[in-house]
Structures are given as structure tokens and as C-alpha cells.
Design a protein around this nucleic acid. Structure first.
Length: 810
DNA sequence: CAGTGAGCGAGCTTCCGCTTGACTT
């Protein structure tokens, strides 16, 4: 029996610490919070100082009972949860739930998992800080009150099952607001003039320090340059330097992994989790940029031995974000001398990124010599500017360069493209090789990526490292925003080129507004947002969280009573909820587009039961017509013309094999429907303009391609097919596709084996996209009586399960 | 991948933060 029980939050941490402490200590993990507010309405007793009702959730029961048992046996219990608001509350919940006694309970904290840090912590125990616990309770209660009072308002006024909350609603607002900025953005075109001087290796580029709004002005400038003298008017050379970025926090890791590796934030977190669990990196949910002394020394010796002393420079970084609680170190390799390991590709790439960033953060700055050459034009007052940069010492750039988001790359004249300039002298006469004036459009603000949204949230102090990824998922799961690729439009721009004393004009085209993996608001997102902004502006204000955080800080310092603070917030808030419920109109985002030209009836667009749609005619019109909006179309921006287009499809295009062919647009784009089968239209064909023989051709072509993929059929049932798919061979029968396992040869499968495979797949519980079981497995009979109710409750939503089982028959 | 778009009502949904696992498209 161990004398000491030490409890931390994370099991991986527990394992490491156990190794440091020897056999007198048993180190266990609480797996995060062990209690939460009950789900029901009585979780918070509003009338009695917001008293809370907590329970141990089902999945924590086992952890709690094991800890309870160990605590009973131990002489001293060490509560070593993180040193932040949540960590303090975890210690308190442990104290209460495990029935601990003050006499043999110690609260300890450390910010790094190193042996000396742990020993030091054990030598300096304290008691639970109840001010901090109160601050956490205030946070928890406020979030519950906001979330569980606002959401039902949405169910009543917009649509069931929607949600609102302090964090998610602001995240949606950011995306909606950004989209509107983009919509109303008026891009302006101007001619940007660049010149190339010299030839071959001596050639360099310069840019005019002014842009021309009108083509004739640009043309006049180029004209004036014919035969003009170009002189180096001034030459300014000065040293410049560049410093490395701080080591990773959760949010900066998510940003860089998104930019450099193309990872979604949730992918980054799950790969990082694996690295953490296998002991490769320190904890991945952190807002701190600190490195422990151990880490600083290890990084130093790694740098010195690999690159030399002159590359090392010790640095401690300061956290920029005010909301940081810094319970952990920055994200870094556990051992800097580990450069590679066995593991999957994603793990290796993310590790490399973390390693480089952490190492670079302890390296010397890079040194440059930056030259700005100003070039005068004898016939004009304007100047051309050439920027040159020569690296004198690479420093940290030897290892790592932080990338930037697109929207941060400004094509600034003074700091534009830097290249190497040939040796120049003041007054030197230059020979012009070519000059171009290109029409450039100003760009609207960039849409958010998952990662840039996280960055913005962090700047606003909204959300925590452990919630960034889940928040991004929530707002997508609720249908408020979608991450999509959208095609841009082509736009023409003009180019004037001056070469050999003559000016050539041409028109070129570029694609604008194309976006990949960006966050777009949906109609429901916009409607919910507008509703919340109208009725609960205080909550969805960008600075609401910052305001309450300030108060939580005061509570944590004992300067304010948490119940007083919550009361001050809650009473007026609740009043708003009540009046909104009673008086606000239903929100459907309805917008009148105008009049249907043929019938003269009203044409309007709004959200309906099945999503956004256009309607011709008033609500009481018996002849009214509907059409759903298509992907990429929004209530806010759809035009009358686009809406009218929607009524032109589906369209009958002719007969084939005595059956009708119909062209329509579905979720996955335009298609031909024939004899209950779907044939997607190849790109570039206008669905409104498909001829009969063209449609037949498309159908025949698809059939031919399907025949090529066919591996075998069966006499027992000709509708069962084995086909070659994108991911290998599979069985196709009715709507069910079943993958054939790698160890089976698709050519020799018997009908019975196929049937067995199909049946096995049909019987498996289908996992929903978000991990919820849709069709539950037959529940094992031996379950605790207390959970029986919940089991029953969980089963009921699986109404659609039986439908899927019918695949074996018919 | 269709078309659907009324209303009633029972019973459901929902927050943020702290953890890991158990699943696949």
C-alpha cells in the first residue's frame, strides 16, 4: 500500500511523474473534470444564490470509485491538477467527491513536468484556493445560464435543436460579419507599374511609387518613359534583422499546421495527442510560450552541437494574450535530440514542425542588409523603387520560417518583393528593358479558415486551448457555417507593356474570389446571428467575454462575491429572455426579391422546414410554387434572376429506352435522372441546355464506365455486383456498398461469402459523422439498473435504424 | 441527388472546459 496518492489531470502525465517519484507514490489521473452540473433544469437554483447541483457523469464513475478507494488507503493525498481556474476547481471537486480530509490533503502545482519541478512542488504544498474555485463556478454557471436559456429561445423562434453560447455564437458572428464585409466590398482597380532594368544576371525589378486609376494615365506614363533617362537617385543601405517566433501554443500550432501541412484544427489536435501520449512532445493544450530551464539547456546544447555557438541565443517569450492562464509549458519536443522516430507520416511532419519551431525560438536572429534604390525618371516627377536584400547571417532561418496568412501578405510598395540587387552606384544611368502597367484590383478581406478563426478568437480572449477545435466543430455541426471550396469568377484586366520603345496593349483574365477550405456562413447561421444580435447584443458582443473575464479575475482575487456578480448579470439577462420569448417575431430571414414576371405574383425567399427556398405567390395562394436554393446561394445575396432560374429545373429533355430523362440540380451538382438512376452532368455543360442525344450519350458513357469497373456478378442474384471503386473492390447491392477486406480476393468470392459480408455490415451500428451511434447494437443484458432509463432514452432517436436492416431481403 | 413549405402536440434538443477513447468516411 502506497503512502501517497498524487492526482493529476492527464494519464500520460501521471505515468511520467510516477517515474520521478519512486515507490512511495501512486500517481493517478482524474481524466479532467470528474463532476459537472446535472443536465436538468434544476442544476442551478436561481432563487438561492445560484446553488449548483453536481453529478459524476457515467463515464467518470469508474475513475472516481478507483480514486476513492486509493484515497482511503493513502496517508497523504496530493491534489496536483493544473494551476488555473479549471484545475483549482478539479481539485475542489476531487476533495468533495472523494470525501477527503483537510488534515491529510495537500494542493500542489507545477508548470513543467520535470523532476526538480515536481520535487519543489511537493516541498511547497498549499491549500485549495477557494477564490479561484469561486471564479470557476461563476464561469461555469454563467455559461450554463446563457447556453440553456438562449438555446430554447432559438427553438421557439427559429428552429428546434439550435444552440447559442458565449463562445460559439461569437464565432458564428465573426464569420457572418466577415461574409457581409466581403459582399459589400467594392473593389477598385488601379494600374501598377513595374520596370525591369538591365539584362541577364544584372537584371532587377523596380516598382513605381504610385498607381494610376485610369488607363490613359498609365499609358501616358509609359509613353513618357520612351526615351527617358533613368538614374539611380539615391541608394540607401541599412542592416536589418529578423527574430524567431515564440515556440508553439495550441492556437499557433493549429495555425501553422493548417498553413504548412494543410491540417484541420481537429486533425492537428489528434495527431498532437498521439505525439504527447507516446512521450514525444509536451502537453498540446496550452496558452503558454514558456520553456522550462531543462528545455532551454537541452535546446542550447542541441543548437551548439549542430550549428555552432554563434547560432544560439537564449530567449524567454512573453505571452501576448491577456487571457492566458499559463498552467503548462509551450508545446515543445520532450527531447530535443530526438530527430526522427517510427510513426505515421502525419506524426512525423507535425513533430518536425514542433521541433523546428522550438529550436528556432532559441536561435540567433537572422541578419540582412537591405537596400532601397530610388530611381528617377527624367520626364516625370514620380520615382521607381527597387528593394534588395542580402542575407548576412541566416541565424534561426537555418531551421525554420513562420508562414503568413494570405490576407497578411500586402503588396506594399516599400516592402514589396525583395530580391538581390546588382551593385549600383548613385547617379548611375540605367537601361530599361521592359516596363509594364498591370491593372490590379483591391482585395476584399479574406474569409476565415478554421485556424485563422481560432487566432481571432484567441485575440478576443474567447475560448480556451481545449475548446478551440470542438468549437469549430460545433458551429459546423449545427449548420451555422460550412467549410467549403467555392469557385471564383473570371475577371478581365488590362496589361500595357512598354518594350523596344513601343507600347502593346492586351486584355487578360484572372480568377477572383475562389476559395478553398474557408468558412462560409449558411442561411441558418445568418438568421440565428441576426436574431441574437437584435435581441441579445450584449452576449454576442465581441467583447462580452473579455468583460466577464475581468470580473472572474476579481472573484479569483477575492475582490468580488461570485453570486453578486452572477446576480447582476442574470436578472436583466433573464428579463430579456422572457420578453423576447413573449414578443419577438419568428425569424425566417424572409426577403422579398420582387415580382414574378409571368404571373405578377410576389417572389420571396426564406428559410423553411427543409432549408432555404424561393416562393412564388403569397402564403394563402393555392397555386404557389417553390424551389430550393442551391449550394453556394444565400437568401441575403440571391438575385431575382438567379431565383427565377431555379424554376426552370427540373426539365424533361426527351425519351430513352421509352423512359423520360430529366435534368435537375442536386446536392452534388447537375444530373440526369433516368429510370430511377442518376447520371451526373460533366462539368462545363449548362443543365438548362442539354439536348436529347447529348443526354443519351452521357447515360451510355456512364454505363460503359460502370461496365469497365465490373469484376463479377452472380447467378443467384444478378443485381448483386462486385465492382472496382476508388478505394478498391466493393460489393454493390441496392443502396448498400460494402468494402471487400484486403485479405479476400474479389474474383473468387462466392455468393454466400458476399451475403455474409453484406449482412455483417448491415448489422453494424452506423457511426454518425460526429461519433454518435445511430443504430445501437443489441444492448448487453447485464447493465446497471440506474442507467436503464438513459439507455432507453438513447435508443429512441434510432428510429431510422430498422430501415437500413431491410437490405438483406427483397 | 425527387418534392416538400399547415398545424397540433409529446418529448426531444442546448452551454463551456477539463480529459481520453473508440470509431470510420
Amino acid at each position: 500500500m502506497a503512502k501517497n496518492l498524487l492526482i493529476v489531470e492527464s494519464p500520460a502525465k501521471a505515468k511520467t511523474i510516477e517515474g520521478y517519484l519512486g515507490k512511495d507514490f501512486v500517481v493517478k489521473s482524474s481524466y479532467g473534470h470528474i463532476r459537472d452540473l446535472v443536465k436538468s433544469e434544476d442544476a442551478i437554483d436561481i432563487a438561492h444564490d445560484f446553488q449548483q447541483k453536481y453529478e459524476v457523469p457515467a463515464d467518470k464513475k469508474q475513475v472516481v470509485s478507483e480514486l476513492k478507494k486509493l484515497a482511503k488507503e493513502a496517508e497523504v493525498i496530493w491534489l496536483a491538477s493544473d494551476e488555473d481556474r479549471e484545475g483549482e476547481a478539479i481539485s475542489w471537486h476531487l476533495f468533495e467527491t472523494l470525501g477527503l480530509k483537510e488534515a491529510n490533503t495537500r494542493r500542489i502545482v507545477f508548470h513543467e513536468i520535470t523532476k526538480p519541478a515536481i520535487i519543489r512542488a511537493i516541498e511547497n504544498p498549499r491549500t485549495i484556493n477557494y477564490h479561484l474555485v469561486n471564479a470557476q463556478q461563476a464561469r461555469r454557471v454563467l455559461d450554463r445560464l446563457v447556453g440553456f436559456e438562449l438555446s430554447p429561445v432559438l427553438w421557439k423562434k427559429v428552429k428546434p435543436s439550435l444552440s447559442a453560447g458565449r463562445v460559439q455564437s461569437v464565432a458564428v458572428r465573426l464569420i457572418v460579419d466577415r461574409e457581409r464585409e466581403i459582399n459589400k466590398f467594392q473593389s477598385e482597380a488601379a494600374f501598377r507599374v513595374t520596370a525591369i532594368f538591365g539584362k541577364g544576371r544584372e537584371a532587377f525589378k523596380a516598382e513605381l511609387n504610385e498607381r494610376f486609376a485610369k488607363q490613359e494615365d498609365a499609358e501616358k506614363f509609359l509613353n513618357d518613359c520612351i526615351g527617358a533617362d533613368f538614374n539611380v537617385k539615391s541608394l540607401d543601405t541599412r542592416p536589418a534583422k529578423r527574430s524567431p517566433a515564440a515556440p508553439f501554443t495550441t492556437s499557433t500550432l493549429q495555425q501553422e499546421a493548417s498553413r504548412k501541412l494543410g491540417f484541420s484544427v481537429s486533425r492537428t489536435m489528434s495527431v498532437a495527442q498521439k505525439l504527447y501520449e507516446s512521450g514525444r512532445i509536451t502537453y498540446m493544450r496550452t496558452d503558454s510560450v514558456n520553456l522550462s530551464d531543462t528545455a532551454l539547456n537541452a535546446a542550447a546544447s542541441e543548437i551548439v552541437s549542430a550549428y555552432g555557438q554563434q547560432y544560439h541565443q537564449q530567449r524567454q517569450y512573453k505571452t501576448k494574450s491577456a487571457s492566458a492562464q499559463e498552467a503548462h509549458e509551450a508545446i515543445r519536443p520532450t527531447y530535443f535530440n530526438v530527430h526522427s522516430f517510427e510513426g505515421d507520416n502525419a506524426e512525423k511532419r507535425l513533430y518536425e514542425l514542433i521541433w523546428k519551431r522550438a529550436i528556432a525560438s532559441q536561435m540567433s536572429e537572422a541578419q540582412f542588409e537591405r537596400t532601397v534604390a530610388r530611381i528617377s525618371v527624367s520626364t516625370r516627377p514620380e520615382e521607381l523603387v527597387a528593394n534588395g536584400e542580402v542575407m548576412k547571417f541566416d541565424g534561426f532561418l537555418k531551421v525554420y520560417l513562420e508562414s503568413t496568412d494570405e490576407d497578411e501578405k500586402e503588396d506594399n510598395i516599400e516592402e514589396g518583393d525583395s530580391a538581390i540587387l546588382p551593385p549600383l552606384t548613385k547617379g548611375q544611368l540605367l537601361s530599361l528593358t521592359e516596363m509594364t502597367a498591370v491593372e490590379r484590383y483591391s482585395r476584399p478581406p479574406a474569409r476565415y479558415t478554421e485556424a485563422s478563426l481560432v487566432k481571432k478568437l484567441e485575440e478576443l480572449g474567447i475560448g480556451r486551448p481545449s475548446t478551440y477545435a470542438p468549437t469549430i466543430s460545433t458551429i459546423q455541426n449545427r449548420g451555422y457555417v460550412v467549410k467549403e471550396e467555392r469557385e471564383g469568377k473570371t475577371r478581365a484586366y488590362r496589361v500595357l507593356t512598354l518594350k523596344n520603345s513601343s507600347i502593346a496593349k492586351e486584355e487578360k483574365t484572372e480568377i477572383t474570389g475562389a476559395d478553398k477550405n474557408k468558412m462560409f456562413p449558411t442561411d441558418i447561421g445568418a438568421v440565428v446571428n441576426d436574431f441574437l444580435v437584435q435581441h441579445f447584443n450584449g452576449i454576442v458582443d465581441y467583447h462580452f467575454t473579455a468583460g466577464v473575464e475581468k470580473q472572474f479575475d476579481e472573484i479569483a482575487q477575492g475582490l468580488q462575491e461570485w453570486t453578486v456578480m452572477i446576480r447582476k448579470f442574470y436578472d436583466p439577462f433573464h428579463q430579456e429572455v422572457e420578453t423576447t420569448k413573449a414578443t419577438a417575431d419568428r425569424a425566417s430571414g424572409e426577403r422579398e426579391l420582387g415580382v414574378h414576371p409571368e404571373s405578377g405574383k410576389k417572389l420571396s425567399v426564406r428559410i423553411g422546414r427543409y432549408g432555404p427556398f424561393v416562393q412564388i405567390g403569397e402564403a394563402d395562394d393555392e397555386q404557389k410554387q417553390y424551389a430550393s436554393l442551391r449550394a453556394g446561394q444565400m437568401i441575403e445575396t440571391i438575385s431575382l434572376e438567379e431565383a427565377l432560374e431555379l424554376f426552370k429545373l427540373p426539365k424533361k429533355v426527351g425519351l430513352f429506352e421509352e423512359k423520360e430523362m430529366t435534368v435537375a440540380i442536386g446536392k452534388f451538382g447537375p444530373y440526369i435522372r433516368h429510370n430511377s438512376a442518376f447520371y451526373s452532368l460533366p462539368k462545363g455543360i449548362d443543365p438548362l441546355d442539354v439536348a436529347e442525344d447529348q443526354a443519351i450519350e452521357i447515360i451510355l458513357d456512364k454505363r460503359k464506365r460502370d461496365a469497365e469497373r465490373l469484376i463479377k456478378t452472380f447467378d443467384e442474384n444478378p443485381e448483386v455486383k462486385i465492382l472496382n471503386g476508388r478505394w478498391g473492390p466493393y460489393i454493390e447491392f441496392e443502396k448498400l456498398n460494402v468494402k471487400i477486406p484486403k485479405d479476400k480476393d474479389p474474383h473468387t468470392l462466392t455468393f454466400d461469402e458476399v451475403k455474409a459480408l453484406a449482412d455483417a455490415t448491415a448489422a453494424e451500428p452506423k457511426k454518425g459523422r460526429f461519433g454518435k451511434v445511430i443504430a445501437a447494437k443489441a444492448a448487453p443484458a447485464a447493465k446497471k439498473a440506474t442507467t436503464a432509463k438513459k439507455q432507453a432514452a438513447k435508443k429512441s432517436p434510432a428510429k431510422n435504424a430498422p430501415a437500413k436492416k431491410s437490405t438483406g431481403k427483397k
